[in-house]
Each structure stands twice: as structure tokens, then as C-alpha cells.
Computed example of a mutant assay.
Amino acid sequence: MSLEEQFKGRSVLITGAGKGIGRALAIRLGNTYGATVYALSRTQEDLDALKEECPHVKPVCVNLLDWNATREALQGLDPVDCLINNAAIGGMQPFLEITSDAFDEVIGTNLKAAVNVSQVICKKMIDAGNGGSIVNVTSIAGKRSLANYSVFCTSKAGLDMLTKTMAVELGQHKIRVNSVSLGCVWTPAFEKFVNLFGGPANLDAILASVKARTPLGDPILPMDDVVNTILFVLSNASSMMTGENVIVDGGFCAT
């Protein structure tokens, strides 16, 4: 069964849907596969632009750092079949300079918000009695240390472990939970990362260091590959997969 057949008529909530990977997922699911997509972002302008391109998207504008506001926004939604916890921020700070606010923002967005959103959505799935599927979008930074990004790396490693514990507890309700760890993807967040490391002038050097450790050679993942993998893991084509982590990095973590 094709992915289009897997998702046609199904409903999916995507966090961080205003830009980058989340936006690409929303457009594929809504425009190509005919799914009902609840697109969550903290930026109304991003949601407006997404809605213009993908008219069937149902926007949810809320700041995931606000625990109670997030729960309130999600409580009003119908039960969904699938959830993609995609929202994330980087937060570059050397370890010795990490501030309390920066720590709370990164952990709050990348890890705590996934707990909050998943709690509300899973309770709805359980009440509906139809099971469900969740994909947590993580990073190879949760497996390989990245200087000046210790909090980001920690948040992604934590999300991988959260995935496993969720899978153990929610399996009895026929809810599958998996994570997909990604390498470099050209998104607004990655562009910001490049700028922090000296801008486009240093991009070749940055990518060369990644390419040297990437057996498949390309240091930047094609967005279609990212979307295809996440949706395969989310779909019933992987119906007996749960508690697993799928790495998409061209082989970087194998070296």
C-alpha cells in the first residue's frame, strides 16, 4: 500500500509545522496524500503562509513553552491518528556559558513540549480506541557530541529515550512510538547554524568535515528523503515497529 493510500482520510498533528521539515511534512500530507493536518507553530505568519499553500491545513498557533496554553489549544482538537513531534530549536552556547534561560528554552521546546503534547494527544487516542502512531524527530546530535551545543545534544538524546519509554507504556493501547534521527537538512534552522559558524564563507569547510565522515558522500540530506522516512515510520507500513530509532544521515554515525 502506497503512502498516499496510508494517509488519505487520516489525521495528523505536526508541531513546528511553520518552517523547514514540519512544513514539508504538512504540505506532503495535506496536498499530496489528502490527510487532515493540524499544523502547530508559535508564529501566525508562518501558519498563514502554510495555509495559503495548503488550504486544508488546520492551523494551531501556540507557544509550546507555555504548558497550560498548549494543553488548552490541543484539548479542543478532535482525536488524531498520528502525531509528529518535530518542533525544535538549537541554542548554541559553550558549556561553561550555558544560562538557565537558554537551558530551559531548549529543553522546554525540544523535550518537555513533546511530553506535554504527547500526553494530551495520547489520552485522546486511548479514549477513541483506535490506537495511533507517533514519530519524534530527533538528531544525530543526540548520538554524536557537537561542541557548543551540549544542551541541544542532551535534549535530542533525551527525546530518543523518551521514545522508548513511551513505546513500552503505550503499546498496550496500540499506540506506536518511534524516533527518526536526522543529519544535516537545509532548513531555516540549519541556515542559522551556518551563520553562527561564520556564515556562507565557511559553509564549504563545515560541509567538507561532515562529508569526510559520510559514506554516501552527500553532507546535506534531501528533504524528500527526510519526509519519506518519517512518513514510512509513521504509517502502518511499519505496523510492528515501536520503540525504535531510525537514523537518516548518509552513514555519518557509522563512521
Rank of each mutant, 00 (worst) to 15 (best):
K124L: 00
K164Q: 14
G131W: 06
T154M: 14
A167V: 00
A128N: 15
K143E: 12
I121D: 00
G171V: 04
K124V: 01
E169H: 09
D160C: 12
G142R: 01
G132F: 15
Q172V: 14
N130I: 05
F152S: 04
E169L: 07
V135I: 07
R176W: 07
M161F: 14
E169D: 13
S150Q: 09
R176F: 07
K156H: 04
S139H: 02
K123I: 05
Y149L: 09
C122F: 10
K124M: 07
N130L: 10
S150E: 12
L170M: 04
G142V: 01
I140L: 14
V135N: 05
D160F: 15
G142C: 02
K156R: 08
E169V: 05
I134F: 01
V168P: 03
C153K: 06
G142D: 00
D127V: 12
Y149R: 07
G131E: 02
N136H: 14
A167Q: 00
G171W: 07
T138R: 00
N130R: 13
V120I: 11
E169M: 05
L162K: 00
G132T: 12
A147C: 13
Y149P: 03
E169F: 10
D127W: 11
N148E: 11
V135R: 00
D127F: 11
T138P: 00
N148A: 11
A157Y: 08
V151L: 13
L146Q: 12
N136Y: 08
N148G: 09
K164R: 15
G131F: 06
L159S: 08
S145G: 14
I140V: 15
A141T: 15
M161G: 07
K174N: 15
A147M: 15
D160V: 09
A167W: 07
K143W: 10
G158P: 12
E169K: 07
S133K: 03
K143H: 12
I126V: 13
G158Y: 15
L162A: 04
V137W: 02
A147G: 13
C153I: 09
V151W: 10
M125S: 04
T138N: 03
K164M: 13
V135K: 03
I126H: 01
S139E: 00
A167I: 01
T165K: 04
M125T: 02
K124H: 05
K123C: 07
E169A: 08
V137A: 02
Q119M: 08
G158S: 15
Q172K: 10
I126L: 05
D127N: 12
T154Q: 12
T165V: 06
R144E: 09
T154I: 10
S133N: 08
I175R: 01
G131I: 01
V151T: 14
A147S: 15
V120P: 06
A147P: 12
T165C: 06
R144H: 10
S145A: 15
K123R: 12
Q172A: 11
V151A: 12
I175W: 03
G142I: 03
